[in-house]
């Protein structure tokens, strides 16, 4: 399947650039942002792979990956904001969301 080669190559290049940003930092939020974008690219790659190999179950993997990506990003931001994942009440006192 040569027709997908161009787009897969582009996505891999973008992935390498984002990985560089994740390694460079400088703040932890930059890394989390890069990880989130890498997750989006991984979803797209999985969605493309279902046509490359003719295996339709890859799009389900992409859906699960997307859900995990969001939950992971929110967990990371919560941890680095409050320094804890499971302390109820801290969020309510400082920020009324």
């Amino acid at each position: 399947m040569m027709m997908y080669a161009a787009v897969i190559g582009a996505l891999l290049v973008a992935l390498c650039l984002l990985l560089t940003r994740a390694l460079l930092g400088p703040t932890v939020f930059d890394r989390a942002l890069a990880a989130n974008a890498i997750g989006t690219l991984a979803m797209l790659l999985l969605a493309i792979f279902q046509f490359v190999g003719g295996r339709p179950e890859f799009v389900d993997l992409a859906l699960v990956y997307g859900l995990l990506n969001v939950v992971g990003t929110i967990a990371v931001q919560k941890f680095f904001r409050y320094g804890d994942l499971g302390e109820p009440g801290v969020a309510d006192e400082e920020h009324r969301l």
């Binding site: 787009v7 582009a10 996505l11 992935l15 650039l17």
Partner: peptide, 14 residues
């Protein structure tokens, strides 16, 4: 085109 925009976005992040 989508791949190009992904690369542009990644360049921007960098």
């Amino acid at each position: 085109l989508g791949g190009v925009f992904c690369v542009i976005g990644a360049i921007g992040v960098l």
